[in-house]
Simulated assay, not measured.
Amino acid sequence: MSDDGTGFLYPFLDARERDPGPLLADLAASAVAKAAESARLRRETLAAHADALARAADEMARRFAAGGRLFTFGNGGSSTDASTLAALFAHPPVGPALPAWTLTADQAVLTALGNDVGFELVFARQLIARGGPDDIAIAMSTSGSSADLTAGLAEAKRRGMFTIGFAGYDGGAFATSPDVDVCFTVASQSVHRIQESQALLGHELWRAVQSRRTEAA
């Protein structure tokens, strides 16, 4: 096995065995361990953030009722997670659709801003153009410290938007920033486990907002 501490992830890469039995057993054990860790972390994360989820859902429901809109953004894999979250609100499997967009959807806008004003401002500049005081901004990240995300949240806060940060590890800059109204931190060192728990948090946030919107109708 690799001595860099990652061999357990893909034991077949360094396998020396000709007999597939031990290799298959290692693979099965690895999959079971990852699934158990993911389930445990998701349960603990939801429990740890129950009050914050309720507070965020209350405020989001109030803002949607007042005509507010949701804008999500992130980098890399967190960009796809942000897109998925926006799509859940805009095109829900059940319940009313709510106005939601991801700021990474338009390649022309992203590349123009990156080229003309710098990548750090690709989200902040979009919020200057589109964001208003009744709106909501959600930044998704594993580190919680990416410069373009913190700049976007700072601009959102300046414009009176309700701001939410999804982060991993210890929360990074999101956890202590005055520009973040609610921070959901997944306490893990694994990017995979962080994003799995963030996906569940996002779904629970959507479900809670839908519940409040239904009750108010």
Score class of each variant (00 low, 15 high):
42 R>Y: 02
42 R>G: 11
43 R>E: 13
44 E>N: 11
46 L>E: 05
46 L>N: 04
48 A>F: 02
49 H>V: 01
52 A>R: 15
52 A>V: 03
53 L>Y: 04
53 L>C: 09
54 A>E: 15
54 A>D: 15
55 R>M: 11
56 A>H: 03
56 A>V: 05
56 A>Y: 02
57 A>M: 05
59 E>M: 12
61 A>D: 10
63 R>G: 10
64 F>L: 13
64 F>T: 05
65 A>Y: 10
67 G>V: 11
67 G>S: 10
68 G>P: 06
68 G>N: 05
69 R>C: 10
70 L>H: 05
72 T>A: 12
72 T>N: 02
74 G>N: 06
75 N>L: 02
75 N>A: 07
78 S>G: 01
78 S>V: 02
78 S>H: 01
80 T>M: 12
80 T>L: 10
81 D>V: 02
82 A>W: 00
82 A>Q: 04
84 T>G: 12
84 T>E: 13
86 A>E: 09
86 A>H: 05
86 A>P: 03
87 A>I: 03
87 A>Q: 12
87 A>T: 13
88 L>E: 15
88 L>R: 15
89 F>V: 09
90 A>Y: 07
93 P>I: 12
93 P>H: 09
94 V>S: 14
95 G>S: 01
96 P>Q: 07
97 A>S: 15
97 A>W: 09
98 L>Y: 02
99 P>C: 06
100 A>P: 04
100 A>H: 03
101 W>G: 02
108 A>P: 06
108 A>I: 14
109 V>S: 14
110 L>K: 03
110 L>Y: 03
112 A>N: 07
113 L>A: 04
114 G>M: 08
114 G>F: 03
115 N>R: 05
116 D>N: 09
116 D>M: 04
118 G>K: 06
118 G>N: 06
122 V>E: 02
124 A>W: 05
124 A>Q: 01
126 Q>F: 08
127 L>C: 01
127 L>D: 06
127 L>K: 03
133 P>R: 11
133 P>Y: 01
134 D>R: 15
134 D>Y: 01
138 I>C: 00
138 I>F: 00
139 A>F: 00
139 A>G: 15
140 M>G: 04
141 S>G: 03
142 T>K: 06
142 T>F: 03
145 S>I: 08
145 S>G: 14
148 D>N: 15
148 D>I: 05
149 L>Q: 13
150 T>W: 04
151 A>I: 00
152 G>M: 06
155 E>W: 05
156 A>F: 05
156 A>W: 08
163 T>H: 08
163 T>M: 06
166 F>C: 08
166 F>E: 04
168 G>I: 04
169 Y>N: 11
171 G>P: 08
172 G>L: 04
173 A>R: 14
174 F>I: 00
174 F>D: 02
177 S>R: 09
178 P>R: 11
179 D>K: 00
181 D>R: 07
181 D>K: 05
182 V>P: 03
183 C>V: 14
183 C>S: 12
184 F>N: 08
184 F>T: 05
185 T>K: 13
185 T>R: 15
185 T>H: 02
185 T>P: 02
186 V>T: 04
189 Q>K: 14
